[in-house]
């Protein structure tokens, strides 16, 4: 197990190194701070003077170490378009994205798991077949299309839900939450649903396939032979083993939810990190883009690592097997 985790840590460090190098290159090669500060009328002497004042005449690896040092201390420079420290922008936007993605995750697990279980247990019934066929529709719905359709029905036609923004928020320390006000909750419904739809379909399909696999296993047949009731078999024997891969997948889902949150935030003008990133991409606001890259890399590395640890904790077979072949993953 330790060998496996050590490999994952090594992989995480490698990812962070490569992404930080890219982010660094982006901020030095593309975003030329000298030009953006001095403008077009500067003389070459001015440029050299400013470059040495900013430390840009030092070798690249010294500047890279410097860049990392600053990033670790949350100094990402100034946003070109907002003219404010990037770190402040990020801190301001983080709560909105985390609330959106976690509510979407709760919805997709809360709806997806029961649907998948129902489809597995009732295999062969017509409605289970219909359920699974319609999951293909769920997978075929791009997030932004779901968002538009929801806005069309619930904002334009019915006028029930707000089509953009986060509603009223309450500040708890530096964290702002929309979960405590009525308008905040109303504003959350559509973006979270738009994000959750395709994940619901994915999770339902996965849970169904896993459950069917488990129900075919020998220990289930023996439990049945021992006269244990069908319901007890399904819920205490089968369900627990079905949920192991679901834990892994929900970690990965959270990653996807955060990635697609960019799209949902753009559709609903949800003031989170994704909208910040899209706006920064549109205006080539390099400090924001490179900070977002670093943050995203750290986030995805952390998610992958937590999933790996959880996997080992939940599945005793992995703990026992790592001495030999287990590390081959």
């Amino acid at each position: 197990m330790i060998a496996l985790l050590a490999r994952r840590v090594g992989h995480g460090i490698l990812v962070l190194f490569v992404v930080s190098l890219l982010a660094f290159l982006l901020s030095t090669v593309v975003g030329d701070p000298v030009a953006s500060i001095l403008g077009l009328s500067a003389t070459p002497e001015d440029r050299i003077e400013l470059a040495s004042r900013l430390g840009l005449d030092r070798p690249w690896f010294v500047r890279y170490v410097d860049y990392i040092w600053n990033a670790v201390h949350f100094r990402f420079g100034m946003s070109y378009s907002a003219q404010r420290p990037v770190a402040d922008l990020l801190v301001e936007r983080i709560p909105a994205t985390i609330e959106l993605a976690s509510v979407a995750l709760v919805i997709s697990l809360g709806v997806g798991i029961p649907l998948g279980l129902a489809a597995a247990v009732n295999r062969g019934k017509w409605w289970a077949t219909v359920l699974m066929s319609s999951s293909v529709i769920g997978l075929s719905l791009p997030t932004f299309v779901v968002g538009i359709l929801l806005i069309f029905v619930f904002s334009v036609q019915l006028g029930w839900l707000p089509s953009f923004g986060r509603g009223e928020t309450v500040a708890i320390g530096w964290w702002t939450t929309g979960l405590l006000t009525k308008s905040g909750l109303l504003a959350l419904i559509m973006p979270a649903t738009a994000l959750a739809i395709s994940q619901i379909a994915l999770i339902a399909r996965l849970v169904r396939a896993e459950m069917l696999d488990v129900l075919r296993a020998d220990y289930i047949r023996f439990a049945r032979a021992r006269g244990i009731s069908q319901r007890s078999i399904q819920f205490s024997h089968a369900l627990r083993n079905t949920l192991i891969p679901v834990i892994t997948v929900s970690g990965i889902q959270l990653g996807f939810l955060v990635a697609f949150a960019i799209v949902a935030e753009a559709v609903f003008q949800w003031p989170g990190l994704g909208l910040l990133f899209i706006t920064a991409l549109g205006s080539t606001d390099i400090p924001v883009i490179s900070a977002f890259l670093l943050l995203a890399a750290a986030f995805f590395v952390a998610i992958n690592f937590i999933v790996d640890v959880l996997y080992v904790v939940v599945d005793p077979r992995l703990r026992a097997g790592t001495a030999g072949a287990g590390a081959s993953l």
Partner: peptide, 12 residues
């Protein structure tokens, strides 16, 4: 390394 990130993020 690429698998660490969702493909849509990279494409974007």
């Amino acid at each position: 390394i690429q698998f660490t990130f969702p493909a849509i993020l990279l494409a974007l």
